[in-house]
């Protein structure tokens, strides 16, 4: 009997290890392929090479750094708009100062809404924004309304539920554990969250922010539908920008070869690198927090 159980365990372990190896191999092959395909574009010399700013295929210029700047600007703006909003929502969700039925119901509704919003396809946000937000921005900022501000606003709306829910999942238990002690000391829930829980849970906060940032950076449809897709460096909230992802979507539909097609892989490579860096930072933070816990 014991032997059977051990055999079963070994078999299970082999299966798990094989699956993990397969998944890793797949990811490694993907990275290798994209990096390999990106090499021709990255090694190209002269004015038109991929790591330059100007994109104008008619003039032989295939620079994608303008799009990289566009992606970065969109993601940073979305995070700056969405981050504080997520913290505000978190405080409201976890630290009610009013226990009346109306307050409780509205908090419940908001919680359900946040869960629901994580499942809304971005194309829905995009369509709604084209009809409502873009005309508003056209009146408020001038220009066509297809601009950095519009896309960043909608990206912020996209990442707020994700960030809020990650924060809540990471902090709620910690807060509950500290609550009796804190309340006994005369602290309010908000004070407890702000002064005790948040400093302790910095990795959770960073993970939530990085997740939001990565999601904003990787989204394709919202920039494609709302940012104007102008291949230039970002010049202000009312100017058009083109995100790397949107650029890939547009170029992939029309090109089959040549420098414009190669630039797609350079763009994919840059996105992959950005995501890898974000992932590494997140891992580092998690490791730091574990060693921190071990010390304390």
């Amino acid at each position: 009997m014991l032997r059977d159980a051990r055999q079963e365990k070994d078999g299970f372990r082999v299966c798990v290890q094989a699956s993990a190896a397969l998944a890793l191999l797949g990811i490694a092959l993907l990275c290798l392929m994209i990096a390999g395909m990106a090499v021709p574009a990255l090694l190209q010399n002269g004015d038109g090479h991929a790591l330059s700013v100007v994109w104008n295929p008619a003039a032989g210029r295939f620079g994608i750094l303008g799009m990289l700047a566009g992606s970065a600007a969109l993601a940073v703006c979305a995070l700056c708009l969405g981050g504080p909003l997520s913290f505000a929502l978190l405080c409201w969700q976890l630290c009610p100062d009013n226990h009346g039925p109306l307050s409780r119901i509205s908090r419940r509704l908001m919680g359900a809404l946040l869960h629901f919003m994580t499942a809304v396809p971005t194309v829905v946000y995009g369509f709604a924004a084209v009809f409502l937000l873009t005309p508003f921005l056209r009146g408020a900022l001038g220009g066509s309304g297809f601009c950095l501000a519009g896309a960043a606003l909608m990206l912020a709306l996209l990442i707020v539920p994700t960030m809020t829910l990650v924060l809540r999942a990471g902090l709620e238990a910690r807060l509950a554990a500290l609550l009796p002690h804190g309340l006994a000391l005369g602290m309010s829930r908000l004070q407890l969250l702000w002064h005790c829980v948040l400093p302790q849970c910095r990795p959770v906060v960073m993970a939530a922010l990085l997740l939001g940032f990565a999601r904003a950076l990787g989204d394709t449809l919202l920039p494609l539908m709302l940012s104007g897709n102008t291949p230039q460096l970002p010049q202000g909230p009312a100017s058009g920008v083109r995100a790397l992802t949107a650029h890939m979507a547009m170029t992939a539909a029309n090109e089959t070869g040549g420098a414009a097609y190669d630039s797609l892989f350079a763009a994919g490579f840059l996105l992959l690198c950005a995501n890898a860096v974000i992932g590494l930072i997140a891992r580092r933070l998690a490791a730091d927090s574990r060693s921190g816990e071990a010390r304390s």
Partner: peptide, 26 residues
């Protein structure tokens, strides 16, 4: 000739129609 560099770029006939239909100055 080519179009000016800061023009808005849309990726389908449908998107173009929506864009112009919603923009009185487009």
């Amino acid at each position: 000739g080519t179009s000016k560099a800061d023009a808005n770029v849309l990726n389908s006939n449908g998107a173009m129609k929506t864009g112009i239909a919603r923009d009185p100055d487009g």
